[in-house]
């Protein structure tokens, strides 16, 4: 039953392919491609790149993909990639609400373990948008649906019975905060930050904050 539920969630994410943050008011109908770079703190100091494609549908939709890695001597032993999209569901005067959904794939490795995670991220962003700038609040839930654990050889010398397999449930974190952006020409600079709290609403992550500074080029 649990497995079927997980499959269902992933299917819904794939079909809908919702995703990511931008200022709808500053985009023209001719602008279809969004290239993004960002730097910030997302469970570690990270740098990321992204690409989005905008559909000129009745309700504006952008499909996008992102890839980020934390800083460190080993470049891609830890990483996060997302694929999904975002849709503007409400637009009244300057007020706008956007839903986002991503499928998430993560990797982690250190001396003791290698982890692969399949997860999802759902978010709602609502705020005041002008062509040149915006400010909005956001609420999101990042669910680590299932994680594959492969103990390292070192771990096996300490704990020979260590299991190599998929662990469900794995975990999840809520985050909430604010974001703002400034547009000039076909460019946009955005900043977002907020608090992270684990899904039990009691426990904090090691560093319970996120922060991101990004630049987006629209073509």
């Amino acid at each position: 039953m649990k497995s079927k539920f997980i499959i269902l969630v992933l299917i819904l994410m794939t079909i809908n392919s919702f995703s990511q943050n931008l200022n709808w008011r500053s985009m023209t109908s001719e602008q279809r491609h969004l290239f993004n770079i960002n730097f910030g703190f997302d469970y570690g100091t990270t740098v990321g790149i992204g690409y989005g494609y905008k559909f000129n549908t009745k309700l504006p939709i952008v499909l996008n993909t992102e890839f980020s890695v934390p800083f460190g001597e080993k470049i891609v032993d830890d990483l996060k990639s997302k694929i999904g999209g975002q849709i503007e569901i409400l637009n009244i005067n300057e007020f706008s609400t956007t839903l986002k959904a991503y499928g998430v794939f993560r990797r982690y490795e250190n001396k003791f373990t290698r982890l692969f995670n399949i997860g999802s991220e759902f978010a709602i962003v609502s705020g005041y948008y002008k062509p040149k700038w915006y400010v909005a609040g956001e609420l999101s839930f990042d669910k680590a649906i299932t994680t594959h654990v492969k103990p390292s050889d070192l771990t096996r010398t300490y704990f020979p019975e260590a299991i190599d397999g998929w662990f469900i449930p794995s975990g999840g974190n809520f985050s909430y905060g604010i974001q703002t952006g400034y547009s000039f020409g076909t460019n946009e600079i955005n900043l977002k930050g907020g608090k992270v709290i684990e899904e039990d609403f009691k426990s904090d992550s090691f560093v319970p904050f996120y922060l991101s500074l990004g630049y987006t080029k629209r073509i």
């Binding site: 469970y43 570690g44 982690y108 982890l115 975990g171 974190n173 039990d200």
Partner: peptide, 11 residues
């Protein structure tokens, strides 16, 4: 970052 990054895999 190895200390911090694991918070998104298991809670």
């Amino acid at each position: 970052n190895n200390v911090l990054y694991i918070d998104q895999f298991f809670t």
